[in-house]
């Protein structure tokens, strides 16, 4: 069951470096995720069916089907430092979009700059990974996708306790602090059993 569920998850990876695209693609495929890679933030938005015009005209009645997400993407993992649109810019566009903001976003960066990390987390990024990204980092993605999926499934009827952490329902608990949500997230991760997709990874010795 776990494997079937995992392969349903589709991750969009954004990185301007072809080497890092190749690497993240392999890491995600090893974890049995469906992967699409693109080399820029604008191509990512294009893939997601985001159009600036439609965003600004969203109050007008639209006959275009593009406002619906045609491609199911369960998570976006993006590099921070890219020419043109940065990973932070991309994150903001996604979180400002009414029909994309539920997709979890994870930022990767080769630089450990606390202010940058905080800025991304405050803007709604789920995680911030330091490059090079490892398999143990990729293992942290699943709870975010499960959470988003669970929320998606339950949306019209009931709100699970997990749902209270998302921006849409934050008004229910306006006093929630980032520290609390961090603990909650950790607790969630612990609650979900980690599949060991590659058992040979453990117990390896450095030669």
């Amino acid at each position: 069951m776990a494997i079937a569920t995992e392969s349903e998850f589709h991750v969009l990876a954004v990185d301007d470096s072809i080497i890092d695209r190749k690497l993240i693609e392999m890491l995600l495929k090893t974890s049995s995720y469906q992967v699409t890679t693109v080399d820029s933030g604008s191509k990512a938005l294009q893939f997601l069916g985001f159009h600036e015009d439609e965003e600004s005209n969203k109050n007008q009645p639209s006959v275009s089907p593009i406002n619906h997400r045609e491609v199911q993407v369960n998570l976006i993992i993006t590099d921070y430092c890219m020419p043109g649109m940065t990973g932070y810019d991309l994150l903001k566009k996604i979180k400002e979009s009414s029909y994309l903001r539920d997709i979890p976003v994870v930022i990767m960066s080769s630089e450990n700059v606390p202010s940058r990390i905080n800025r991304c987390l405050e803007e709604g990024a789920e995680e911030f990974f330091l490059k090079p990204v490892s398999l143990s980092d990729v293992n942290k993605l699943k709870p975010h996708m499960m959470k988003a999926k669970a929320k998606d499934d339950q949306e019209p009827t009931k709100q699970g306790p997990e749902g209270s952490e998302t921006p849409e329902t934050q008004s229910v608990q306006p006093q929630q602090t980032p520290a609390q949500s961090g603990n909650k997230r950790k607790a969630m991760e612990e609650g979900i059993s980690q599949e060991r997709t590659r058992p040979r990874y453990s117990g390896l010795t450095v030669i």
Partner: peptide, 19 residues
């Protein structure tokens, strides 16, 4: 580099050389 080697498997036997 060890991580790259570990990611290489039967379905991607040339992964390290490609990267």
């Amino acid at each position: 580099f060890i991580q790259l080697q570990q990611l290489q498997d039967e379905s991607n036997p040339d992964f390290v050389v490609e990267v």
